[in-house]
Simulated assay, not measured.
Amino acid sequence: MSDDTTAVGNETTPGTETESDRATDRAVDESERQRVHVTRGLVDVLLDMAEEAEPASMNLVLAPTPAGEFDDDLGLDPETPVLTHFYMAEAGQSVSAVFGMDLGTPAGRGRARFLTHPQGPFELTERDDLAAVVLLAVPPWEGRTLAAFDRAGRKLKLVVLDAEPPREELD
């Protein structure tokens, strides 16, 4: 059977999809949504910062770069977000305090957060600032004590990529 035909009953009809094909596509889509991609460099910096900040907790906004913007082929769909940057919480705080607006994070960024729980637990709590994706770390500040969660607290698969994000230049 060629790639552009699918089985329907005992016959093959070009261009038709079976319910099984649609279920497989939905499972692949769901599997991709349950993955969070992050560069090793960002993970290393975040864990180092968490260790230096201990016993204080951290709460940083993370920003992605589409996989297609990397110089190297990451083997991902070009639109797949890869977490590559963070924004310091202090940026824009004086304006935020007066006007209640977060001006420290560029528009369209910040759908992910990095949080630490220096005294535990290794799960999201009701006190945490949530985002679509939350990277949570606990001591000892290592890769095995870093995990990704969705806003409902469900654990996601964290994929650490050995890739350098594209260089950004100021105009």
Results as ranks from 00 to 15, higher is better:
residue 39 T to F: 02
residue 73 D to F: 04
residue 48 D to M: 11
residue 14 P to Q: 11
residue 92 G to S: 07
residue 61 V to R: 00
residue 53 A to R: 12
residue 99 F to P: 02
residue 20 S to C: 05
residue 157 K to V: 14
residue 84 T to Q: 03
residue 29 D to Q: 12
residue 75 G to L: 08
residue 26 R to T: 05
residue 133 V to W: 01
residue 1 M to Y: 11
residue 94 S to R: 14
residue 124 L to Y: 00
residue 1 M to Q: 09
residue 88 M to R: 12
residue 34 Q to G: 12
residue 132 A to N: 10
residue 59 N to K: 11
residue 98 V to H: 10
residue 69 E to D: 15
residue 117 H to G: 00
residue 90 E to R: 11
residue 71 D to C: 04
residue 40 R to I: 09
residue 107 A to Q: 11
residue 49 M to Q: 11
residue 126 E to V: 10
residue 136 L to R: 01
residue 8 V to G: 09
residue 91 A to D: 08
residue 83 L to N: 01
residue 102 D to Q: 12
residue 121 P to H: 04
residue 78 P to M: 04
residue 54 E to F: 11
residue 171 D to E: 12
residue 142 E to D: 11
residue 93 Q to S: 13
residue 24 T to K: 10
residue 76 L to N: 06
residue 26 R to S: 11
residue 98 V to S: 10
residue 95 V to P: 09
residue 132 A to G: 10
residue 6 T to E: 12
residue 126 E to A: 10
residue 109 R to H: 15
residue 122 F to S: 04
residue 129 D to F: 08
residue 84 T to I: 06
residue 24 T to H: 09
residue 156 L to M: 07
residue 89 A to I: 04
residue 118 P to I: 03
residue 110 G to V: 01
residue 167 R to G: 06
residue 32 E to L: 14
residue 136 L to P: 01
residue 74 L to A: 11
residue 122 F to M: 09
residue 21 D to Q: 15
residue 61 V to I: 07
residue 82 V to E: 00
residue 50 A to Q: 01
residue 145 T to M: 13
residue 41 G to M: 04
residue 125 T to G: 03
residue 150 D to F: 02
residue 168 E to D: 15
residue 58 M to H: 04
residue 149 F to G: 02
residue 23 A to C: 10
residue 86 F to E: 02
residue 152 A to F: 13
residue 66 P to T: 00
residue 115 L to F: 04
residue 77 D to H: 07
residue 63 A to G: 10
residue 60 L to R: 05
residue 51 E to P: 02
residue 135 L to C: 13
residue 74 L to Q: 09
residue 68 G to N: 06
residue 117 H to F: 00
residue 12 T to A: 09
residue 28 V to I: 15
residue 61 V to G: 01
residue 75 G to K: 14
residue 134 V to T: 13
residue 78 P to I: 01
residue 122 F to K: 03
residue 64 P to G: 06
residue 171 D to V: 15
residue 145 T to D: 08
residue 117 H to K: 00
residue 166 P to S: 02
residue 69 E to S: 15
residue 8 V to W: 12
residue 4 D to Y: 08
residue 169 E to W: 14
residue 17 E to I: 05
residue 86 F to Q: 10
residue 119 Q to R: 13
residue 119 Q to A: 08
residue 38 V to K: 01
residue 102 D to C: 13
residue 125 T to D: 05
residue 16 T to L: 13
residue 88 M to K: 11
residue 88 M to V: 08
residue 14 P to E: 08
residue 92 G to W: 00
residue 4 D to R: 12
residue 23 A to T: 13
residue 141 W to S: 02
residue 7 A to R: 12
residue 6 T to K: 08
residue 105 T to N: 07
residue 37 H to V: 06
residue 104 G to L: 01
residue 129 D to Y: 04
residue 146 L to C: 05
residue 141 W to M: 01
residue 93 Q to E: 15
residue 35 R to G: 10
residue 152 A to H: 14
residue 59 N to T: 10
residue 90 E to H: 14
residue 39 T to Y: 05
